[in-house]
């Protein structure tokens, strides 16, 4: 290992502090015994206990998970289908327009997406609730899925699918038993991305939610406006923990898969 020069060490510390100091403070004060979020009054886990007693937060968490799960599944299906058309269908009239329109929501201000969805739901007389949030989240997260999946599909060797057809598969069977298993990692990361986007969305959800359907970000935001309570710190700490666990697991498994593949390949050449 090379030792870091003092300059690099300082930059690293400053950068990390800039990124993580706010979160560290948040996590520390979630274990604060006192009610004030700025004064340390000893270690305690009582806010975690009271958080699980708080029905409003628990309901919001449940709504968020439900919305996140369903909308990311829908977004994955639609996004994958869109990616296949863009990558595979070759040239057809309006292809450029179509692919541009798929990617436009990536750069569209969320306020505009939220507002237009709200206007649409009002126009068609749809009561705002869990369903409208699901639809809204599907709309904006499917383009992320299609970006992720299409980047994998571009690298996909189409002769694999032709080989499946050649060996007796119907086109759907070929997709199901060859293409899908091979692009599965991209589809899964697309799903995870959609799920994460849905979990932390505040703007679009506040446009499209109804009185009975508050998501966690909305709940936290409105609670904070009435004053920060240590319960929110506890809730945020749990969310940070879940996200960190997910990210670390994914990166560790993929790293292990790569080293294993490399080892096996070397073994194959040694055997040959």
């Amino acid at each position: 290992m090379k030792r870091l020069s003092w300059f690099n060490a300082t930059s690293l510390t400053l950068g990390l502090a800039f990124l993580y100091l706010p979160m560290v403070i948040l996590v520390i004060y979630s274990f604060n015994a006192g009610k004030l979020v700025t004064v340390w009054a000893g270690f305690s886990t009582k806010w975690y206990g009271s958080l699980f007693q708080n029905e409003a937060f628990m309901n919001a968490a449940w709504v968020t998970l439900k919305v996140g799960f369903i909308s990311s599944c829908l977004a994955t299906i639609l996004g994958t289908m869109a990616a296949i058309v863009i990558v595979r269908a070759g040239r057809f009239p309006g292809r450029t327009l179509f692919s541009g329109m798929i990617y436009a929501p990536l750069v569209m201000p969320e306020v505009i997406t939220g507002l237009s969805l709200l206007l649409l739901f009002i126009a068609i007389g749809m009561d705002r609730g869990v369903l409208t949030i699901i639809l809204a989240h599907t709309t904006f997260s499917m383009c992320y899925v299609s970006v992720v999946v299409s980047s994998r599909l571009v690298a996909f060797d189409e002769s694999l699918e032709e080989a499946a057809l050649d060996l007796g598969c119907t086109p759907f069977d070929a997709f199901k038993s060859v293409t899908l298993p091979i692009i599965a990692p991209a589809v899964i990361s697309g799903w995870l991305l959609a799920f994460t986007l849905s979990l932390d969305d505040l703007v679009i959800a506040s446009f499209t939610s109804g009185p009975s359907s508050t998501t966690l970000p909305i709940k936290i935001f409105s609670a904070v406006r009435l004053g920060v309570s240590p319960e929110i710190n506890a809730l945020s700490t749990i969310m940070i923990g879940i996200v960190a666990f997910g990210v670390i697991t994914v990166s560790l498994t993929s790293k292990r898969a790569i080293t294993r593949a490399k080892r096996e390949e070397q073994k194959a050449f040694a055997d040959a």
């Binding site: 060797d157 002769s159 694999l160 032709e162 080989a163 499946a164 057809l165 050649d166 060996l167 007796g168 598969c169 119907t170 060859v178 298993p181 091979i182």
Partner: peptide, 20 residues
């Protein structure tokens, strides 16, 4: 006759083996 109904099989240049 579609490809999957032909009594013809093909060996691809890239081999097209299913990696999974």
């Amino acid at each position: 006759v579609p490809p999957n109904k032909r009594a013809i099989n093909m060996m691809f240049q890239s081999y097209a083996l299913f990696p999974h």
